[in-house]
Design a protein around this nucleic acid. Structure first.
Lengths: 343, 343
DNA sequence: TTGAAAGCGCTAACAA
DNA sequence: TTGTTAGCGCTTTCAA
């Protein structure tokens, strides 16, 4: 690759002048030099060395997109329609802003911090941060951060500066509505199905419990099914769940993907959905529409979440500050065919 | 961030010695220095500056993962289960090899070349390269390349050096088998449904045509439905397709995603699958199992394709050479419920 | 075993 | 308007 220095030598000008032309800072360059240099740049197809540029400018032009997920989920995290849509939203904004996206999957916040530090990313978009993580991140990472579905306390949140935002959903409220809807349709034995009950899903669990209690139903620990999404355990967990499902008339699942997998497993085992079991999911991604029966689900827009996070990061980088630390999007229930009225 | 120089000064040793310890090149460092330096590194939580390291070493530790897709597909490329699974396969291998993944979506080969050049990526994984692209890539990009589903001529292929591989599928043969299966089940009016007929899909189209002709059916241009996958056009294209579908007893779709969307559209319009229309897809991703009826589809393993591409790139970087320019994986038909025997 | 010095390719402060 | 110079943080020769 040809360098600025070589070009400068060849044309008998200084590297600064060439550099200025390359970067379009042509106010201080004479017309004849601009033309001469531009012609030559094109002729030799000059392409700047990003590494050198970044070192000189103490930045990276990289946005670190970090998916903090537990090991069991790593292998198929991209195939979760929620994540896929979110990434699509992020990618577009980041690319159009002239930045590059580095995607990192990890379940270890220390590793993540090392990663974004060593690459000196200009901003980080962090998916699924928990409270303890947030404390560490806040201590160590001093660049713009946008979170999607971080679930952290008000106190920790307030420790972050002006370059922090969390894009969230009204999870508790949304799930409250889902469960209320089930109850309105005559369901009293309602399961809660998730791969974890941290962060966002803790909020959802609260909504679930509150809805039950408000309708005079006492939630028990047994009603919460935590399953292992790793490839190995997947079918085992699923079958366990299906066995238990017979004791229920409805199950709330914390994502469309899990809902649809459960539904599929049930149907294959002769449990009819929704006649024998009603199912509700979350996300309203493509999969909920193509599944049969079509899935009743709590709508949110993963793509919008991703886009918004990316837009905010760009604003932060460009000097704007966050006016608030949280943006809470509104969910709504999309009623399709996977819930039966059993009144 | 603390630098090697500062550490050296503080400890009264040279930057070289610190650098050697950081990189584990401790053969030439005295034990007392090793210990002293390691302790201090830990104490100050030293994290190397990747940019500086890369500039000095003339490499990047980056693998460029490039999705070359037409503009209409950009917005939801990650949500295609094929792409999602493939990315998952790539990510794992790349990460475990100590590299970082930069994902770039573009439909312009010149832009792609500029991108990987400016970032000085150590290797590129390229999805969906066409013949003309390949010529340009071969001219300009002299680092290891692994392609997934590139479709290029033997001559162009041979112009690449020892650091090139293409991971492909026996597309023509596979689709030949799909169509033969349909014909065996009594179908004679069979449509071909795709968003493009370049590259891989050109091979599939050949398989389609050959199967028809071998069974005495003359394929016509009208039987090929090209639709526009952009968000705007999506429903319009789909409806057009569905209108035409009445003239057919079966449709072959070039991906599960499209197959499932078509199936869904048909069902919503009162066209029963498979009673009124049989459908076959390609990929055998999750979506084909959760759709109803379950989709009969040509199985391949996107994840394996991705993994293999990434493994090959790493081998190339580590000095190994390609023994062949193509690895052709075997597909096979997975028979589920979306095809009806109408004999 | 250690360290001085040059260099990776670019930018930016400052002088001319 | 142009060019000189130093420097970004690291690695790598090579001499001590």
């Amino acid at each position: 690759m040809i360098t600025i220095k070589e070009i400068a030598q060849h044309l008998g000008v200084s590297p600064t002048t060439v550099s200025n032309v390359v970067r379009g800072k042509t106010k201080e360059v004479s017309k004849e030099n601009i033309e001469k240099i531009q012609d030559y740049l094109k002729k030799v197809n000059y392409i700047p060395n990003m590494t050198a540029r970044n070192l000189a400018q103490q930045k990276s032009n990289i946005i670190g997109v970090v998916l903090k997920v537990r090991k069991e989920r790593t292998t198929h995290i991209f195939t979760d329609p929620f994540v896929a849509e979110m990434l699509g939203g992020i990618e577009e904004v980041v690319r159009k802003a002239g930045y590059s996206m580095m995607v990192r999957i990890s379940d270890d916040i220390e590793e993540i911090l090392d990663y974004v530090t060593t690459w000196n990313v200009d901003g980080m978009i962090l998916f699924c941060m928990l409270n303890d993580d947030a404390i560490r991140v806040q201590q160590q990472f001093k660049k713009p951060i946008a979170c999607v579905d971080a679930y952290i306390s008000k106190e920790v949140e307030d420790k972050f500066g002006d370059k922090f935002i969390n894009i969230a959903l009204d999870d508790e409220e949304g799930v409250y509505n889902c469960i209320s809807y089930l109850i309105d349709n005559g369901h009293r034995k309602i399961g809660f199905y998730s791969d974890n009950i941290e962060g966002v899903n803790a909020a959802r669990l609260r909504g679930y419990k509150r809805a039950l209690m408000d309708h005079g139903i006492k939630p028990t620990k047994d009603d919460i099914f935590k399953f292992d999404p790793s490839l190995k355990m997947h079918d085992i967990s699923l079958n366990k769940m299906i066995d238990k499902a017979k004791d229920y008339t409805a199950v709330f699942c914390t994502s469309d993907m899990y809902a649809v997998e459960l539904m599929n497993g049930c149907i294959l085992k002769g449990i009819n959905v929704p006649d024998d079991l009603s199912i509700i999911g979350v996300d309203d991604t493509l999969i909920s529409k193509v599944a049969r029966p079509q899935l009743t689900t709590l709508h949110q827009s993963p793509k919008e979440k991703g886009k918004l996070a990316a837009v905010k990061i760009m604003e932060f980088i460009n000097g704007e500050n966050a006016e608030e630390h949280q943006i809470i999007l509104k969910s709504h229930l999309v009623i399709r065919d996977s819930v039966k009225n059993i009144k």
